[in-house]
């Protein structure tokens, strides 16, 4: 329990470097940045593995406490964001899909509509935009909540009660965010494709709804569904890991919380882009 958190954070004790005097030469500064980045990646990796271990080892443990917390996190990272995602889907449909459909129709390239939509919306923009919005709305809140809890000594209070802080604080957030991003991505894609056609229809594009959706479904294959599910779950897992790690890792003072929140969001974006790149390679290989 105590060991779970301590192990990950001892691996990445970057405070020594952050509080040390700034090096004078450019190469020393670059070296320090690189060393800090390696330590952070090491700490995040250890934290991710520990969290996975707790999820596997304690699945079904303390159901009276953990299940309501998981439901609460799914609601926070999923259900509560539905209105915002309805707006985002409409915006994405009007701004991207509608214009693409219209442009393709003008050059007589509506045959490419299905594959274009699948690549742009289903594979890329849908999952990535969902991840960014959830990172901004829920990830930031995670860092602040956990950072404050850490600063107020709630983690020690949990340990004193025999409650594993990773199990109680992290696991529900990881599960909630993974499930939330998966579900919201589906809604965003469906909403964007629907509203996009509506926009094209209003511009008198000569394309029937039947043809439009037929082209999209024909361009989709089973791999798209499988990789979309894996990608969104990976986004949720890693965003939760990065934000929870920074919330719990270093700050013991309240004044550190806002600075750490900014760092966590930046790293969250980097991790999402990295995960996305891995999936692009997977698409290309298959």
């Amino acid at each position: 329990m105590r060991g779970n958190l301590a192990k990950a954070f001892q691996l990445a004790n970057t405070q020594v470097f952050r509080h040390a005097t700034a090096p004078k030469s450019l190469t020393d500064q670059l070296g320090r940045k690189l060393f800090l980045a390696i330590l952070t990646v090491q700490g995040l990796g250890a934290f991710a593995l520990i969290t996975l271990g707790v999820i596997l080892k304690k699945s079904g443990g303390a159901p009276g406490v953990i299940r309501p917390r998981v439901r609460q996190e799914i609601s926070r990272a999923g259900v509560a964001l539905l209105p915002m995602f309805l707006f985002a889907a409409l915006a994405l449909g009007f701004l991207v899909v509608g214009q693409t459909v219209s442009a393709l129709a003008k050059v007589g390239a509506t045959n490419y509509l299905g594959s274009t939509m699948v690549i742009v919306i289903v594979r890329e923009i849908g999952p990535l935009l969902t991840a960014m919005l959830v990172l901004a709305r829920v990830g930031t809140a995670n860092v602040i909540e956990l950072g404050t809890a850490r600063a107020l000594g709630e983690v020690e209070a949990l340990e004193a009660l025999g409650i594993d802080p990773v199990h109680y604080l992290i696991v529900p957030r990881v599960v909630g965010m993974a499930a939330g991003i998966f579900a919201l991505t589906i809604y965003l894609i469906l909403g964007a494709l629907g509203s996009g056609y509506l926009f094209a229809f209003l511009q008198d594009v000569p394309l029937t709804p039947g043809d439009y959706f037929k082209q999209i479904t024909e361009a989709l294959n089973w791999l798209d569904f499988a990789l979309l599910a894996l990608k969104t779950l990976a986004f949720g897992f890693f965003i939760a890991i990065v934000t929870c790690y920074h919330g719990l890792a270093q700050p013991l003072r309240l004044e550190d919380v806002s600075r750490v929140a900014v760092r966590a969001v930046t790293q969250g974006v980097i991790v999402c882009v990295f995960v996305d790149t891995v999936f692009i390679v997977l698409y290309l290989l298959t």
Partner: peptide, 19 residues
């Protein structure tokens, strides 16, 4: 060091519910 998001009764029963 109480958990402010929980009520008094929930704070007290938390260790019992977790075990």
């Amino acid at each position: 060091k109480l958990f402010n998001q929980l009520t008094v009764a929930e704070n007290i029963s938390l260790p019992l519910r977790y075990q």
